[in-house]
Simulated scan of single mutants.
Amino acid sequence: MEYHSYISRPLSGGSMNPARTIGPALASATYKGIWVYVVGPVIGTILGAYTYNLIRESDKPIYAISQ
């Protein structure tokens, strides 16, 4: 059970689990606001990878550093 959704759902109307939003939206053909659950993870992944490369201390692969 998702306890944190009891706090955020009344404030924003969003869900913490994208599958619980995308599944019913596809089944009912109601796509209003679904773009956030599709675009958000993609942008987050790209920004996370870019940030990792910025703060990484070495250009060597991880297995070469950990030896």
Rank of each mutant, 00 (worst) to 15 (best):
R9D: 06
G33E: 09
L26W: 07
I43N: 04
G33V: 09
H4R: 14
G33P: 00
Y37K: 07
L54D: 01
E2M: 14
A29W: 11
A49H: 08
T51R: 07
P18F: 00
N17Y: 05
S58R: 14
I7W: 10
G44M: 08
S12F: 14
I55F: 15
Y6P: 07
I34F: 05
G44L: 02
R9I: 00
W35D: 03
I43E: 04
S15Q: 15
L54N: 05
Y31H: 05
D59G: 04
I43Q: 05
R56F: 04
G40E: 09
I22S: 05
A64L: 11
I43L: 14
K32D: 10
G23D: 15
W35A: 04
L47F: 12
M1P: 00
I34G: 01
R9Y: 03
W35C: 03
A29S: 03
N53L: 09
Y63R: 08
P18N: 10
W35F: 07
A49Q: 12
I34L: 12
G14Q: 08
T51S: 06
A64K: 14
H4P: 00
S28A: 14
K60P: 10
G13W: 04
Y63I: 12
Y50K: 09
T30S: 13
I43A: 12
E2R: 05
S66R: 11
G23C: 14
I46T: 06
S58A: 08
A49G: 12
P18Q: 09
I62S: 07
I34H: 01
S8M: 08
G14Y: 08
S58K: 13
L47Y: 09
A25P: 04
R9C: 06
S66K: 11
D59K: 03
L11M: 12
I7A: 07
A27L: 11
Y3H: 09
L54H: 14
R9S: 04
G13S: 05
P24A: 13
S28Y: 13
V38I: 14
S8Q: 10
R20V: 00
I62P: 00
